[in-house]
Simulated scan of single mutants.
Amino acid sequence: MQFIQEMILQYGYIALFFSLALGIVGLPVPDELLMTFIGYLASVGMLNYSLSVAVSLAGAMTGMLCSYALGRKFGKPLLWKHGKWIKLTPERLEKVEAWFQRYGPWTVSFGYFIPGIRHLTCYLSGVIGMGKRKYLLFSAVGAFSWCVLFISIGYFIGAQIDFSHFHASLMHRFFSK
């Protein structure tokens, strides 16, 4: 997380965008902590709240679309060949597919709030061939809600807690470059 914080402080919104996009694809980025930190930075005036939400949404959606495309292109053949290593037999894959056909769109929206599940739902949406428009709609609703929630938590809690020592150190780093 320290590295990501430094990248955000140095490169701002660009680092935020790529951190979220790569985190959604599957790199180990602590997304909720990152979003809360972004909210804090917005509360002390180092970032703009609305722009932070917009950039976060764009980064999350980019990652989600990449995961969807990977699942669509490579998913089933890859799972049929290597699924046994994760105990996903063809029969289980059929059950997951049937369940996902029924509840998948809502899982994409609400699964976004559960680490690990949000990554899996993106790939599975592509694997089962969910329509792109439906996927975009449900993933955008989930991503927007998630971004607003966690940035707002950081924004409102950050404004209430005295981080003056931390804030002074942050301001020195941010503006001394």
Rank of each mutant, 00 (worst) to 15 (best):
R102Y: 02
G154F: 06
Y49F: 15
G59E: 02
G129C: 08
S145A: 14
L93S: 12
G39L: 02
L170Q: 12
L41W: 00
S176I: 13
A58C: 13
G131T: 07
L136H: 01
V96P: 01
Y68D: 09
A15S: 13
S19H: 01
I128F: 08
G154S: 09
A60W: 00
M7R: 08
E32I: 09
W80Q: 14
V127T: 01
G23M: 03
S176C: 09
A140P: 06
A143N: 06
H167N: 12
M171K: 14
L149W: 05
F138N: 02
H172P: 00
G83H: 01
E6S: 14
A140L: 14
W146C: 01
G154K: 04
Y103F: 15
F110W: 12
L20V: 09
R133I: 09
Q2Y: 08
V127C: 00
M46V: 11
M1I: 12
F163T: 05
S164P: 05
Y112R: 11
M64I: 11
V148C: 04
N48C: 06
W80A: 12
V55Q: 00
H119V: 04
C122A: 14
F74C: 11
G142R: 05
I161E: 05
I38H: 01
N48Q: 12
R72L: 11
L78Y: 13
G142I: 01
K76F: 06
Y155A: 08
V108P: 00
W106C: 09
F144N: 09
R72N: 08
G12N: 06
I38T: 13
I8W: 04
T36L: 08
F113S: 07
F156G: 09
K177S: 11
E94A: 15
K177I: 08
G104E: 04
L27S: 05
A21M: 11
G126E: 10
F110T: 11
G23P: 06
R173Q: 14
I8P: 03
K84E: 14
W146R: 03
G75F: 04
M46E: 13
S152W: 01
L88W: 10
P77D: 06
R92Q: 14
S125A: 13
G45W: 09
Y155S: 10
E6L: 13
Y112K: 09
L27W: 06
L124K: 01
K76W: 04
S67K: 04
V148W: 01
H167I: 11
L93R: 07
P28N: 09
A140K: 03
P30G: 07
S125Y: 03
L47Q: 03
E94S: 10
Y103T: 13
S152Q: 03
L79M: 10
R72I: 07
S164L: 02
L170Y: 08
F3N: 12
A21Y: 00
F18M: 10
A21E: 01
T89W: 02
R118T: 04
G39E: 03
F100Q: 07
F110L: 15
H165F: 10
T89R: 03
Y49H: 05
E97R: 13
R118F: 05
L51C: 01
F175R: 05
Q160S: 15
M171P: 06
W106P: 05
Y103I: 02
S67V: 05
A69E: 10
F37L: 10
L93A: 13
